[in-house]
């Protein structure tokens, strides 16, 4: 048996194209499912629970999330991979902590956003999707929202990449925009799979829109447009606070942070390798 080499060569780009196709397929699956659901939403839900739409939403969104995970996970460096469990734990624990302060938000994506900021959009998307899958171990109702969570992680990474985390006041703006998109994408799940929202406060807002004669999907989408941008604005702000509270040795170990100068402050004196 020949001894393996002590060194490795530069990872080839051959496998990259296949993965990129998977990523695109995943994103396309999510987008197509959303468009399909909006176009074919039952005109009259009084005929019965929207089982058809529920199955399509579950199938399409979960397929998309799984494709994204399959595309991204095997190529993540170990240093990023070990952060995903940490992010999931932070999502759960910080979400509970924020809940204990009595703020009327769910704040359940801090870890996902933090990973997106430190390790990039792909890692953020995988973290979001995995977060939903692992969390569904304790709360199966979060499983269908995997696609929305992946979108949040992806957008957090993109925001970091174009420098929105370099200015502190831009982070909540990025969160606000992310919240709009994520809220709209997640609304069909809430509408068709659960028939409403899981909180009484959000339920009341949906009720108000329903009282005005909106369809269920429209009412839930409008509710999401009210609460989600606010929520994600807070989440992005907290993630920015945390990213700046970390010592530079910790944040600068991420190639993504070094390469795109994600965080403000003077660049390291040594030239980037």
């Amino acid at each position: 048996m020949s001894q393996p080499a002590l060194t490795v060569t530069d990872p080839g780009q051959a496998a990259g194209r296949g993965r990129r196709l998977l990523e695109i397929a995943g994103a396309a699956s999510i987008a197509a499912t959303y468009v399909f659901l909006v176009l074919t939403q039952p005109a009259d839900i009084a005929n019965g629970p929207a089982s058809f739409s529920a199955l399509v939403a579950l199938g399409g969104f979960l397929l998309g999330a799984v494709l994204l995970i399959v595309a991204v996970l095997p190529v993540l460096p170990t240093s990023t991979l070990v952060l995903i469990p940490v992010a999931l734990v932070l999502n759960v624990v910080l979400g509970q902590l924020m809940g204990s302060t009595g703020l009327p938000f769910y704040i359940d994506a801090i870890g996902t956003v933090l990973i997106g900021v430190l390790a990039g959009p792909a890692a953020g998307a995988a973290t979001g999707a995995l977060s939903s899958i692992v969390w569904s171990f304790f709360n199966p109702t979060v499983l269908p929202f995997a696609a929305g969570a992946a979108l949040i992680g992806f957008l957090a990474g993109m925001a970091a990449r174009i420098g929105l985390f370099r200015r502190f006041y831009l982070a909540p703006v990025a969160g606000f925009i992310t919240g709009i998109l994520a809220g709209v994408v997640s609304a069909p799940i809430a509408a068709f799979v659960f028939g409403g929202t899981s909180g009484l406060g959000t339920g009341a807002i949906v009720s108000a829109f329903r009282a005005m004669g909106d369809t269920l999907l429209a009412a839930i989408t409008k509710q999401a447009l009210i609460s989600d941008p606010m929520d994600k604005g807070i989440v992005f702000t907290i993630a920015a606070l945390l990213a700046y509270a970390l010592p530079r040795r910790t944040t600068f170990q991420f190639p993504f942070v070094r390469r795109f100068r994600v965080l403000a402050g003077k660049a390291p004196s040594a030239p980037d390798a």
Binding site: D44, G195, T197, S198, G203, A204, S207, R210
Partner: peptide, 12 residues
């Protein structure tokens, strides 16, 4: 939430 939502407001 479902009870309040659909029980009280169900335009259909």
């Amino acid at each position: 939430s479902l009870l309040v939502l659909h029980g009280l407001f169900f335009p259909e």
